[in-house]
Structure formats: C-alpha cells, structure tokens
Design a protein around this nucleic acid. Sequence first.
DNA 1: CGGAAAAACTTCAAGCCTAAAGTTTTAAGC
DNA 2: GCTTAAAACTTTAGGCTTGAAGTTTTTCCG
Lengths: 150, 150
Amino acid sequence: MSTTSKDRLRLWLKVLKATKAVESEVRENLRRDFATTLPRFDVMAALMQHDKGLKMSELSGVLKVSNGNVTGIVERLVEDGHVLREKVEGDRRANLVRLTPAGKAEFARQADAHEGWINAAFDGLTADEAQRITESLDAVARRLENGGKA
Amino acid sequence: MSTTSKDRLRLWLKVLKATKAVESEVRENLRRDFATTLPRFDVMAALMQHDKGLKMSELSGVLKVSNGNVTGIVERLVEDGHVLREKVEGDRRANLVRLTPAGKAEFARQADAHEGWINAAFDGLTADEAQRITESLDAVARRLENGGKA
DNA sequence: CGGAAAAACTTCAAGCCTAAAGTTTTAAGC
DNA sequence: GCTTAAAACTTTAGGCTTGAAGTTTTTCCG
C-alpha cells in the first residue's frame, strides 16, 4: 500500500537521524577524550573479543568492511602501539593481529567511557521499549542479510 | 544500574547493525541503478524540498555536514548537470544552488526507487511497531540535539 | 612435479568527511 | 570614512571507505 510505504520511509529517516546523532556524538567524544576514531575503536573492540588474535581477512569479515580498509586502520593502530602483527605459522601470506597490553588497557578505558555515552544517549528509554526496538530491527537486519529474499 | 547500561549498549549495537545494513544496501543500489552516491542523493533531496534554491551554508545546515563537504558534492552535481549555481542578488559571497529540470527528473526516478528499497527493507514491520520505534528514536535524537542536557 | 586457480593481502584511484586555515565580501562601530 | 569583526565560501591535510587491480603464497589436480 502506498501509505505504508511512505510511513516506512518516514520511519527510516527518523532512524537514520537518531543514529547519525548518536554516532557523531561518539566520534566527537572519542576524538576529544582519547584522540582516536570510531573505526579504530571498532577494530580494537573486535580484537578484544578475540584474545588469540584475528587475521586481516577475519577482521574485515567481522567488521564487514573491505580488506583494503582494514590494512590502513591496523597500520595506524600499530603506529599507536595499540596493536601488533604476528607471522602466522605455516602461511606466509597471512597476518595475525592482536592487541598489545597497552592496547588492552587503553581500550578498557575507552569502552568504559563509550558505554557511558550510549547510556546517556538512550536515557529515558524503558527496558520494554528497548526490547521491542531490538526485536524489530533484528528482523530488518536479518532480512537484508538474506539478500531480501526472506 | 549496570544492567540497564549494558542493555542499552546492546540495543545501540543492534540499531547500528540494522542501520548500516539498510544504508549499505541503498548505497549499492544507487550506484548500480543510477551511478550516483548517497551524499549526492541527499543533496538533491534537500534541493527538491526547496524549489527556490538553497545557499551553500543553508545546504550544509540542513544536511548537518561541514561547509567544505558541500562544496565538493555540489561541484560534482554541477558536472553531472543535475544542479546549478546562481549569483545571489546583493551578496557577492553567496551562491544559490538549485536543481536543473534534468536534475529534478532524475531525482524523481531515484526517489521512487529509493522508497521501494526502504519499503522492502522494512517489510514485515507493522505500522504499530513502526510508530513506537519512531517515537522512541525521536526522543533520543531530541535529547542529543539539546546537548544531552534534557 | 608443474601449472592454473584461489587465497590473503596491499596498493590505487576516487569520493566522502571533518576541522582548521585562508579568501573575499559585507556589516558594525566609532 | 575607516577599521575591525563577522559571514560565506573554498582550500587543505588527514583519515575512512570502496571496488578494482596487483603481489605473493598456497592449494588443487592431472
């Protein structure tokens, strides 16, 4: 129905607006408080969850970004001393990326602050609302993952 | 409470995931079907709503991006013939940006397809769910606009 | 074994984005 | 009128992002 379609478009614009607002707040805060960026934070978050390290390709798979993209971000994280690259036993093509101890400590501080910012942004949202939104958006994400076929 | 904070973080990650999925779908489709980009689409959408044209600064204000950013995007839209820049009477600093007739026609086609993509992405969402999400996220956006003070 | 195909990366070109600095024009205050 | 400040833009440097092309290693398989 035409009305429904317009309604969904309106919903999307709202979702986008709110998301961009939160995201740009997070970017500013990361820059101001930690002199880092969201992409770097995301890489470190992924590595934090994989203590044994991740190969470049696994990293780009987890973050759903291109291979070439990860190359540059990891490069800068290495310069920062937050991350290091190890040879992979038995495959000279691959690289294992890990957090350094300093990287882990730094990320812990960042993640803590990050959780606070998000908590503040979503302040006033009841657990019930949060639950419903989560479910609805999960469905959207799932549908797109399946190529819109389901 | 700590639990609530983690829950909100989880919600945020879900919102982000779904949003990125939809957005990247839209970007791909714009590229594939219209050889254009989301930023260009956004500029044209803003101009479509302001038939008398917008100054560069108004455009960056509406889209909430930096001035320098708009300079480049408009430049490319001019090359495409979708947009033109006019002198502003009485202020030689300013530029008025407008859609050309060709730009309007092209945008109409794009907007039509765009609505369809969004409609498909949010297929399965009831009007009721959509309504609730909209309200909740509006509150989030409003809070951040006020600098987190309210 | 030897060659073709695939895998894991990196590099490149082009575009997007921001903050900061620079230019030109207009407005304000004296 | 003159000087200073502000406004409207553009330019620049640095980083993110992608798709495509290129490199080196590994794997497949005949």
